[in-house]
């Protein structure tokens, strides 16, 4: 695949976006070409690192401030629920993690699409980094849900559609983490994991609508796109703060890991290049050294 190698060398050399595909024949082609160029502008590692460094504080600090404010508000200043009492406060950490478990996987699926169709090198690295963070958050979502379910429902776990579909999401994350690291040749791992990432996206609408399609022990969503929230504003505020804060925090952690990953791959490339120059044989640089 000459095309792929071309992208990779461009990525490693950091000399700018790859060339366009000449003439445009039809709508899809021009669409893919245009979007491809747009994405590949950020494939340049130098530009990504510069922009990432600039973006990082704008994610990290608001994330910290909003999360802490939401947690303090939720723990100490929001009212107790009329039927759940103080246990309702678990909501302020459970709901944001549940939202992030799904949207993190959505991010993974988008990276998979970028990887499969446009062979975007940064999307592969992002998929590697989103996996562990998303899996941890999903684990937290399941655990806090259990801690909420035991005092309220009277059970740690039931096999209803909502809980089971989120558990499936957790296993999808674990599978993705394992698969993307399973091959000696990273490119094959990226390809296989991207297919899993896209296929697993089928679980997302199932999670979302499980509480409407089937009878579940889990209650339906309180906040919907169409209807008014069935929640008092005094509870909506801290929930909104923690949700926004956790989301920014997720983005900040993924961005930091991604920047580190790009730097690490650059270090590897430079080391490999130095080794290649030093060795008298001057053998062609192996693909393995690429990110």
């Amino acid at each position: 695949m000459g095309e792929d190698r071309n992208f990779l060398t461009v990525f490693i050399a950091g000399t700018g976006a790859p060339g366009t595909d000449g003439s445009t024949l039809n709508a899809t082609q021009s669409l893919t070409a245009r979007t491809g160029n747009l994405f590949h502008r950020y494939a340049n590692p130098g530009r990504f690192l510069r922009m990432g460094a600039k973006l990082q504080p704008w994610l990290t600090w608001p994330a910290l401030v909003l999360s802490l404010a939401g947690i303090v508000w939720g723990l100490f200043f929001s009212p107790a629920d009329w039927q759940q009492g103080d246990s309702v406060r678990i909501m302020y950490v459970h709901v944001p993690t549940a939202w992030l478990a799904s949207s993190g996987y959505m991010g993974l699926a988008v990276c998979s699409l970028l990887s499969l169709v446009w062979r975007h090198p940064l999307a592969d690295l992002a998929a590697v980094e989103i996996g562990p963070v998303g899996a941890s958050i999903t684990a937290v979502c399941l655990a806090t849900g259990s801690l909420w379910g035991k005092p309220m429902w009277g059970t740690w776990w039931v096999w209803d559609a909502r809980l089971t579909s989120v558990l499936v999401l957790f296993f999808l994350y674990l599978g993705h983490i394992a698969l993307i690291r399973a091959f000696d040749e990273p490119q094959r791992g990226y390809r296989a994991a991207a297919i899993l990432g896209l296929a697993g996206a089928v679980d997302l609408p199932i999670i979302k609508f499980s509480v409407q399609w089937w009878n579940t022990l889990h209650q339906p969503d309180s906040i919907t796109v169409t209807g008014a929230p069935t929640m008092s504003t005094s509870m909506l505020w801290p929930l909104g703060l923690t949700t926004l804060g956790f989301t920014l925090g997720f983005a900040a952690i993924v961005l930091a890991r991604l920047r580190a990953s790009v730097m690490e791959s650059r270090v590897r490339t430079i080391l490999a290049a130095n080794r290649g120059r030093q060795s008298a044989a001057a053998a062609p640089q192996p693909d393995r050294a690429t990110p």
Binding site: Q83, Q84, D221, S222, S232, M235
Partner: peptide, 28 residues
Amino acid sequence: SEVLAKHDETYMPKEVAEELRRSGKWDP
């Protein structure tokens, strides 16, 4: 052999619930 409580998606402060009950707007 087992009874699980299923709470709904309505979250409301205790005081508001008591107020609604007292004013006759709603009986849980």
